[in-house]
C-alpha cells in the first residue's frame, strides 16, 4: 500500500465492505420491510418493496398489547441497571482509587461469578422465586438482572475510574476540598462519561437478556424477550405482524447500540481491548 491510497483501491474496498455490510444487515432490513407488507405480500415470495402499510404495527398493539411487554422491558432493564450502578459505583470507586493487594483478586472473583452457567442455578432460583412469590414479577426480574450484570458493571466502572488520574484527587485535597466537595466538584464531573457508557451498555445487555426473563416470567412481567419468544409456534401465517413486533422490540436498543458502539468494545472486554 502506498502512502497516497489510490482511488481505485478505495473504490474496490468500499464496494466489498458495503456488500459484506448489507449481507450482514439484510435479515434486519428484510424484517423491517416485511413489517410494512400485508400478510399475503409477506409470504408471496421475495420482494424488497412493501406496500407500505402500518396496519401490522397497529394490530400488534391492539391484539397482543405490545405496550405492556415494552414497558416491562423498559422498567426491568433500566431499573436493574440503575440498581446495579448504585451498588457498583462505590465499590468500583474504592477499588480504583484505594487499591489494596487484594483488589485484583476481588475483581477476578467478581468476574468469575459471571461465568457460573445460568442453567446450573435455574432450579434453586426458580424454586426460590416460586416460594417468595417473585415469579412473573417485575421486581423479581429486576433483582435477577441486577445480580447477573453487577460484575460487569463493577468492572466497566472500574476500568473507567482507573483512568481518572489520582493526582487530580490529591490536587483537590491540597486545594482544600473535603470528601464531599471532592465528589461533587471533581470526581463526579470526571466520572460521568464512564458512568453514562456503563449505563447505556448495561441497559442493552439487560434488554436482550433472554434466559431468566423468559424462564421467570409468564404474562404480567414478561418483557419483550418473552413476548417475542411466545411467537415461536406460529398459528397461521402472520409474518408481517411478527416482523412488526420484532422491529418494535429491537428498534430502541438498536439505536442505543449505535451510539454506544465505541464503549461496547472496552466495556465487554473489561478494558482488555480499547
Amino acid at each position: 500500500m502506498a502512502r497516497s491510497v489510490t482511488t481505485r483501491h478505495k473504490v474496490t474496498a468500499t464496494i466489498a465492505a458495503w456488500i459484506v455490510a448489507l449481507i450482514i444487515f439484510f435479515p434486519i432490513l428484510y424484517t423491517i420491510i416485511t413489517s410494512l407488507k400485508t400478510e399475503p405480500e409477506a409470504i408471496a415470495g421475495f420482494s424488497l418493496i412493501p406496500s407500505g402499510t402500518f396496519e401490522n404495527y397497529i394490530t400488534v398493539q391492539t391484539q397482543r398489547d405490545y405496550f405492556k411487554p415494552f414497558m416491562n422491558s423498559v422498567v426491568i432493564s433500566v431499573g436493574s441497571t440503575i440498581l446495579a450502578l448504585i451498588i457498583a459505583i462505590p465499590s468500583a470507586w474504592a477499588m480504583a482509587f484505594s487499591p489494596t493487594r487484594r483488589t485484583k483478586d476481588v475483581l477476578m472473583w467478581m468476574l468469575s461469578t459471571k461465568m457460573m452457567p445460568a442453567v446450573a442455578v435455574l432450579v434453586p432460583i426458580y424454586l426460590m422465586f416460586r416460594d417468595f412469590g417473585l415469579l412473573d414479577s417485575r421486581i423479581g426480574l429486576t433483582v435477577m438482572l441486577t445480580l447477573i450484570n453487577l460484575p460487569i458493571v463493577v468492572w466497566m466502572l472500574y476500568t473507567y475510574f482507573r483512568e481518572i488520574p489520582g493526582e487530580i484527587l490529591e490536587a483537590a485535597r491540597m486545594d482544600g476540598a473535603g470528601l464531599w466537595q471532592e465528589i461533587v466538584y471533581v470526581l463526579t464531573p470526571m466520572a460521568v462519561p464512564g458512568i453514562a457508557s456503563t449505563l447505556l451498555l448495561n441497559i442493552i445487555l439487560a434488554w436482550n437478556e433472554a434466559f431468566w426473563t423468559i424462564r421467570l416470567s409468564t404474562t404480567n412481567a414478561a418483557p419483550l424477550t418473552a413476548f417475542i419468544a411466545s411467537f415461536s409456534s406460529p398459528q397461521g401465517l402472520f409474518w408481517a405482524k411478527l416482523s412488526a413486533a420484532s422491529t418494535m422490540a429491537i428498534a430502541p436498543i438498536l439505536i442505543l447500540g449505535w451510539f454506544s458502539q465505541k464503549q461496547l468494545v472496552r466495556g465487554l472486554t473489561f478494558g482488555a481491548v480499547k
Binding site: I168, A171, R173
Partner: peptide, 21 residues
Amino acid sequence: AAPAARGLAMVFQSYALYPHM
C-alpha cells in the same frame, strides 16, 4: 493535619488540572 489545613500548595508532575473546568 489534613493536607488542606497545612497551608501548602502543590504543583504536580502531571499538572493535575481539572479537565472539565
